[in-house]
Computed example of a mutant assay.
Amino acid sequence: MSLHRRPLLALPALLGAAALRPARAADPFRVGFVYVSPIGDAGWTFQHELGRRAVEAALGPAVKTAYVENVPEGADAERVIRRLAQDGNQMVFATSFGYMNPVEKVARAFPKAKFEHATGYKRAANLATYSGRYYEPRYLTGIIAGRLSKSGTIGYVAAFPIPEVIQGINAMLLGARSVNPKAVIKVVFTSSWFDPGKERAAADTLVAQGADYLTQHTDSTAVVQAAEEKGVWCSGYDSDMLKYAPKTHTTAVEMHWDDYYIDRVRKAIDGGWTSGDVWGGLASGMVKLSRFNPALPAPLLAEVAAQTEAIKSGRLVVFSGPLRDQSGAVKLPEGKALTDPEILSMNWFLEGVQGKL
């Protein structure tokens, strides 16, 4: 009889012990981020890092994130992305264009994990893509440059001649020519997303060639710092860079990934994640202009504000005809607008851009 009674007597004690122990929480959902440059305190990678921090702040213990910074595009990227997947990350954000082929390859090897690639175009059932319509705020910085430049020459330090970069150059010219039909853009490519030395040298070259307004599609603050030293107006890229050029920095094309990252991770946790492509513009809040230099005249700010609302509402379409390329050939007749596929595959410069692809 005691054989039966002993478990019964022990049961309350066992229940009491169990009650004292907290229930084991579910393992956090693990998310990895891969960055092409050092995080720093401004630039492309910094903005993605702010998005990662926002995920942790919004989702708390339900999520655990990791990141690897300063990862070169190519074989190193594949190694890092693969390691993040092997280490148990259930979702990986690869945040540079050159990660496209590596992340596609790793996604095939880890079909249960979810992958997202910034600025790319290759997708799969477990691989999504996302980017911003950077060309929309670029058009607005073109208006500012067109109004402020006395020479009408804008210097543009660019990384690589890919559609994302070419869109920005062409859009800025269109904005500048909307207020100064004689404006031109001179382009210098650095063949690197992040190389402060090359970016500074390119900026110096452009000023020597007559540019009195500088901008960039690169990741460091070297261009705006050069502009400050040279005493020429400038606009930054990726994030607010005013503190690096307090006298000459007008504004910056700024990216905001917070809401996107929180939404995508939450969907992955809840089981609602699906592959696809997101291309957010000014209306979505994914891209915008950063704070303005206090020295900018009120009429110019009003003009930029009006055109911002026109783009958001669709009343102003940046790439609308007539458009001519560098040779003078008509690329788009009057009354027409470029389609998204045409913008995404843009591989030509507008008439008025001085540079080679």
Rank of each mutant, 00 (worst) to 15 (best):
R133I: 11
P196D: 09
Y130C: 07
T153S: 12
C234I: 07
I154S: 00
E199N: 09
T205S: 15
D204C: 11
G142K: 03
F194P: 08
A222E: 09
W193A: 07
I143V: 08
A159Q: 06
G132L: 13
A227Y: 06
E136N: 06
H117Q: 14
A201V: 13
I185H: 02
Q225A: 15
A226K: 13
G197K: 11
K150L: 01
K186G: 04
P161H: 06
Y130N: 10
G168H: 05
T153V: 15
S131G: 14
I144K: 02
R177Q: 14
G155P: 02
T218V: 12
V187L: 01
P196F: 11
T129W: 08
S178Y: 01
L173R: 01
R200W: 14
P181F: 01
M172L: 15
K182A: 14
D204E: 15
T205Y: 08
A125Q: 12
D204H: 14
R138E: 12
A125F: 10
F115R: 10
P181N: 02
L173H: 05
L214A: 02
I143H: 02
T141S: 05
E116A: 13
A176H: 02
V187I: 04
G142F: 03
A226V: 13
S178N: 03
I166M: 07
A128R: 13
I169N: 05
Y121D: 09
V223I: 11
I185E: 01
D195I: 06
I166V: 15
S178G: 03
G175K: 04
E136G: 08
S191T: 13
T215Y: 04
I166W: 03
I154Y: 01
K112D: 12
A183C: 00
N170Q: 04
V232D: 02
Q209R: 15
T221S: 15
A227T: 05
T119A: 15
G152L: 05
T215C: 12
F189K: 04
Y139V: 07
I143Q: 04
K230N: 05
K114F: 15
A226D: 13
P137D: 06
D219L: 10
A208Q: 13
S235A: 13
T205N: 15
L140W: 02
K112W: 07
Q209H: 08
